[in-house]
Amino acid sequence: MNIGSDFVTHDHVEIGNDVMISSSVSFIGNDHSFDELGMTIQDQKLLPRALVRLEGDNLIGFGTIILGNVTIGQGTIVGAGSLVTRDLPPNTVCVGRPARPIRNRAEK
């Protein structure tokens, strides 16, 4: 596993084998509840910590932000500057805000 500088996590993390995380990557999980309109967000309870799961053989590009409870499938690459808001399937290249698969790694 390789992790670049300025990596930040506020989540529980499970990292498989052979994962590379570039610099300036953040795993940001659940924060405060905000459903009680008669109460300030600051006064509402903290939500349980999220889980980010990297199944292995992943590359997470520079400046990527991963939100909440997500799994990034085995062999998946996440392009620089992406915002991951949901699970990403195995062996795909995913980019964007929000991150979406753009191709399977097996395609030439």
Rank of each mutant, 00 (worst) to 15 (best):
G4Q: 01
S5V: 13
S5T: 03
S5M: 12
D6N: 15
D6Y: 15
F7T: 08
V8R: 06
V8H: 15
V8Q: 12
T9Y: 12
T9A: 13
T9L: 10
T9N: 04
D11I: 06
H12T: 02
H12P: 05
H12L: 00
H12S: 05
H12F: 08
V13T: 11
V13K: 10
E14T: 10
G16E: 07
G16Y: 01
G16D: 13
N17M: 14
N17Q: 11
N17P: 08
V19D: 00
M20Q: 15
I21P: 03
S23H: 05
S23C: 14
S24Y: 11
V25F: 02
V25Y: 07
S26W: 05
F27Y: 11
F27H: 06
G29D: 10
N30M: 10
D31T: 13
H32R: 09
S33G: 14
S33P: 09
S33W: 15
S33D: 01
F34L: 11
D35V: 13
D35N: 14
D35C: 01
E36Q: 13
L37V: 14
G38E: 12
M39T: 12
T40G: 15
T40Y: 07
I41P: 13
Q42G: 14
Q42P: 11
D43N: 09
D43K: 13
Q44N: 13
K45W: 11
K45T: 02
L46T: 11
L46R: 15
L47S: 07
P48H: 01
P48Y: 10
R49C: 02
R49S: 05
A50T: 05
V52E: 11
R53G: 00
R53W: 05
R53E: 06
E55M: 00
G56Y: 05
G56W: 04
N58E: 02
L59T: 14
L59Y: 04
G61T: 13
G61P: 10
G63N: 15
I65T: 09
I65Y: 09
I65K: 06
I65Q: 06
I65G: 11
I66E: 00
I66M: 02
L67V: 04
G68N: 04
N69C: 07
V70N: 08
T71K: 05
G73F: 01
G75V: 03
G75A: 07
T76R: 12
T76L: 02
V78S: 04
G79Q: 09
G79Y: 03
G79N: 12
G79R: 00
G79K: 12
G81D: 06
G81I: 01
G81Q: 10
S82E: 14
V84G: 01
V84F: 12
T85D: 06
T85F: 11
T85S: 02
R86Y: 09
D87K: 02
D87V: 10
L88C: 04
P89K: 10
P89H: 06
P89W: 01
P89R: 11
P89E: 07
N91H: 12
V93E: 00
V95M: 03
G96H: 01
G96S: 12
R97Q: 09
R97E: 11
A99Q: 03
A99M: 09
A99C: 10
A99S: 01
A99D: 02
R100K: 15
R100I: 00
P101F: 05
P101L: 12
P101D: 11
P101R: 00
I102T: 08
R103C: 09
R103P: 06
R105P: 07
R105C: 09
E107D: 02
E107L: 05
E107W: 14
K108R: 03
